[in-house]
Design a protein around this nucleic acid. Structure first.
Length: 837
RNA sequence: GCCCAGGUGGUGGAAUGGUAUACACGCUGGACUUAAAAUCCAAUGGCCGCAAGGUCGUGUGGGUUCGACUCCCACCCUGGGCACCA
């Protein structure tokens, strides 16, 4: 047979698979279902690089494997196409984002097609398609109806470069997650989604998901549920009260001061005359500081005394009330009770201003003396002291006791707080889903009637964001001015658009029923396919997409549209693929490797193999161009082994190795491991490289390799196993001067049987054990010899023991020594314990 | 500070408590070739030794065990998340 030349066979089979529709997914089947989903990409103008393809290759191997295992597999692909790059490009070149997006999608779809991914392309969706975003808008209206979308004018995070508001999740270390610009606080009229109403459900739901620990923890951290108590303190000589939130009321007998933030409304009421000037100038000073500056770690504590005292109800003690900017108005109650004996921050403040420090917990070390050094932290265990009726109690017991007591007395109220904030949902940009609402002077905010959806994005003259907090849509009077659906009076459209995340919140539902124009998704189909069994993508979406879509999904569940309370049962997060220089692949660094380059040079199957072989799926690994040749060499060796003549009498070693290989590869794929099964296949080929295989063995091996290298295995399956010479390539057509092969190929097209429609090989249980096993002889923990032992005597301890004693290498260590103990693990190891002199 | 993941050859990495370093890259030597590429074969953790062999060795220090990369305790380092969060 000819040499292995990938680009002579790959396109041919891709065409054949398409013509025969072998990856089309029926909506019902007697087979069990498996929904395997990739996080769909943003169609960037640069196309995708080999890092993205690690995700798609892995999921494609899963999809192909589970099809062979007898599952009805849903494996779709689509485009998350709203977003800033297309819009910024439009600003620069005045090319409409629809055109840019369509071009980019074509580029990327082509990249995926030349790599041979087995998507059901009939189900492709595009979030910017009006027939898609009709339903995104429809969901928004449902949120609005349920009171989960509200309008507010609040100070929000604003990116001055992108000129739009951002959600909390989109601000990282005070910077815009997209462009890295320092964000500002800006008062903008916003649409906000009440994700906090689902905080508890989102928290509880995540516990039972089969997701990586780290991603679950990130969500739990982000939701940040905390149980504490608001304690009320009377201000001495006044009718005012100050309320402090704390999670550690057990230490409240150690409270020696209270700090309120500079924006606290109480300041003007309680500041004593002689302190007024000082307090005023302090507030003025801090007003210029950004929140980031105020909470910067390691910054010396500043503050001023108000002259007022609060009364601690527990012991009647009067404690001074200070103002300091480390206390933030928007966290807790904007006031903190200071327990410097057991909190580092409070300790620093007390030291700075000479306030008393009282210890109320003895830690494990038993040290109850006043702290003499900074850095005293809150104990996680310990016993109460100096706390009257709490004395002697464990701190956790004391926490419950004191909360009960404070509530009983009416001095406190248990509260739960969250780090999660409501989702700032509107963007002052063009390229997003228009929010389907109308502002009417008479009726207020009115939803667009469902039958008028989709509300299409209008053409504009200019895409530039205005920067004023208005979207470019506001500049189109024709579009903005409309009539109120309720009173039919003149009204104006909402001009904000939805954020990038909207379309991806529910796309997995649309793949189930992509062309339905009557409803979002057919109920029956939804019940059949949901939940997504296996979701594969990048971990960078841990608190963005993965939290937002869980939120929408739960709302849809409450509306009866989805039948599961969670969208993604199992999640695997891919590790970053770095460039060979160890840096992130980026166009500006010029270190990007595209799948096209690798397909051109080595073929798609080599690209796929290397994506899997380079290392564990979740590891961060640098792309190593030198190593690619290793998997290419493996494929040419496969080609050679499969092209050799066949034998009638199977080699026993090969037969056992092949049986074990099937089990190993299947097991590893199901555990998202791709490097080890490829290594095992390499071992098998190394073993059989100088042997002859039977036809049955060849077929079995090809099927096992097929999910990884679909093109080559199809070619060999058709030629070697089925014996059809459909090798009609441009090359061979030329050689054969265009005679018979083409016609033959066409005639057989109707009964095309693909290797990808074969069943995963069953392993023969009687052909898994070698005739001989090697047993290590261990003496005092050191391996001294390895015995080859026949299978049938393997379990006889006496015989193995005798063999070990008689062995030359091990025997000399045992001679003349008294053996204290012998442990034998059949087929593995025999361990002698002897006296050492 | 808190939470999570991880530390194994020159490199990517493998190993249900049971022969550490599979598989691959790279380097080295050999075969083929006029030569090179490609391919094939062999070798490849450190130290000692001509060799047989010995000895140390999975971040560090302890522990459990006949036996530990794997389990337990303490610590160090790297990466990620949260954070003057009250």
């Amino acid at each position: 047979m000819k040499k292995y030349i990938p680009n002579q066979i790959e396109a041919k089979w891709q065409k054949k698979w398409k013509e025969n529709g072998i990856y089309k997914t029926p909506d019902s089947s007697p087979k069990p279902k498996k929904y395997i989903l990739d996080m769909f990409p943003y169609p960037s103008g640069d196309g995708l690089h080999v890092g993205h393809f690690k995700i798609y290759t892995s999921s494609d191997i899963l999809a192909r494997y589970f099809r062979m295992k007898g599952f009805n597999v849903l494996h779709p692909m689509g485009w998350d196409a709203f977003g800033l790059p297309a819009e910024n490009y439009a600003i620069k070149t005045n090319v409409h984002p629809t055109i840019t997006t369509a071009n980019n999608i074509n580029t990327i779809r082509n990249q995926m097609k030349i790599t041979g991914f087995s998507y059901d392309w009939d189900r492709e969706v595009n979030t910017t398609d009006p027939s898609y975003y009709k339903w995104t808008q429809w969901i928004f209206l449902k949120l609005f109806e349920k009171g989960l979308a509200y309008e507010d004018e609040a100070p929000i995070n604003w990116c001055p470069k992108d000129k739009t508001g951002l959600a909390n999740e989109e601000v990282v270390n005070g910077k815009c997650d997209r462009c890295g610009t320092q964000t500002e606080k800006k008062l903008v009229r916003q649409w906000i989604l009440k994700i906090t109403e689902y905080a508890d459900q989102l928290l509880e739901g995540v516990q039972n998901l089969d997701w990586p620990r780290s991603i679950k923890d990130m969500q739990i951290n982000w939701i940040g549920r905390k149980e504490g108590i608001n304690i009320t303190y009377k201000v001495r000589g006044s009718s005012e009260e100050v309320v402090c939130f704390t999670t550690r009321p057990d230490t409240n007998f150690g409270a020696t001061f209270i700090v309120i933030g500079p924006e606290h409304p109480l300041i003007t009421k309680i500041t004593q005359k002689e302190h007024l000037d000082e307090v005023k100038s302090y507030i003025a000073k801090t007003a210029n500081r950004s929140e980031e500056e105020r909470i910067a770690q390691g910054r010396a504590k500043t503050g001023v005394f108000t002259g007022s005292y609060a009364v601690n109800n527990l012991n009647g003690k009067e404690i001074p009330i200070w103002v300091s900017d480390f206390v933030l108005g928007n966290v807790g109650t904007g006031a903190v009770v200071g327990v410097p004996g057991h909190d580092k921050r409070d300790f620093e403040f007390a030291k700075e201003f000479g306030l008393p420090i009282i210890r109320v917990v003895v830690g494990r070390d038993g040290d109850a003396s006043a702290i003499t050094q900074a850095g005293q932290v809150q104990e996680e265990e310990g016993k109460m002291i100096n706390s009257e009726f709490l004395d002697g109690m464990d701190i956790h017991e004391a926490t419950v006791k004191i909360m009960d007591y404070l509530e009983e007395k009416g001095w406190g109220k248990r509260v739960t707080t969250y780090h999660l904030r409501d989702w700032i949902f509107s963007r002052q940009r063009y390229w997003g889903e228009p929010i389907p609402l109308i502002h009417c002077d008479e009726c207020g905010v009115v939803a667009i009637p469902e039958d008028q959806l989709p509300l299409e994005l209008p053409e504009v003259e200019k895409y530039e964001p205005t920067g004023t907090g208005e979207s470019p849509l506001a500049a189109i009077p024709d579009w903005v001015n409309t009539i109120c659906p309720k009173c039919e009076g003149p009204a104006k459209r909402e001009t904000n658009t939805m954020p990038q995340w909207a379309g991806s919140c529910w796309y997995y539902l649309r793949f189930i029923d992509p062309k339905n124009d009557k409803m979002l998704v057919d109920k029956e189909k939804e019940r059949y396919w949901m939940p997504v069994d296996w979701y594969i993508g990048g971990a960078e979406h841990a608190v963005l997409h993965l939290l937002y879509s869980r939120f929408w999904h739960k709302v849809l569940f409450d509306l009866g549209i989805t039948s599961t309370s969670e969208p993604f049962q199992k999640l695997s997060g891919v590790g970053l693929v770095l460039a060979s220089d160890g840096r992130k692949m980026s166009k500006s660094l010029g270190n990007v490797v595209t799948p096209n380059q690798i397909v051109d040079e080595y073929g798609a199957d080599t690209l796929r193999l290397y994506e899997g072989f380079m290392g564990p799926f979740e590891n961060t690994i640098s792309w190593d161009p030198a190593s690619i040749n290793g998997v290419y060499k493996f494929l040419t060796r496969v080609w050679e082994v499969m092209s050799k003549e066949e034998t009638e009498s199977p080699d026993n070693k090969v037969e056992i190795a092949l049986n074990r290989l099937g089990i190993k590869v299947g097991h590893d794929i199901e555990n998202m491991k791709f490097n080890t099964p490829i290594a095992a296949m390499m071992e098998f080929i190394n073993l059989s490289y100088h042997a002859l295989l039977t036809s049955e063995q060849k077929k079995k091996f090809l099927i096992i390799l097929a999910p990884f290298a679909p093109h080559m295995t199809e070619e060999l399956f058709q030629n070697v196993i089925l014996g059809r010479s459909e090798t009609t390539t441009p090359e061979s057509t030329k050689e054969d001067s265009g005679r018979a092969p083409i016609k033959l190929g066409l005639a057989r097209m109707t009964d095309f049987i693909s290797i990808h429609q074969q069943s995963w090989p069953e392993s023969d249980q009687n052909q898994l054990e070698e005739k001989e096993v090697s047993v290590a002889v261990q003496i005092n923990g050191k391996v001294r010899d390895v015995l080859l032992i026949q299978n049938d005597i393997m379990s006889d301890k006496k015989i193995v023991e005798k063999m070990a004693l008689e062995s030359q290498k091990a025997g000399k260590f045992l001679a003349g020594k008294s053996v204290k103990k012998i442990v034998y693990i059949p087929g593995k190891i025999i361990s002698f314990v002897i006296d050492v002199d």
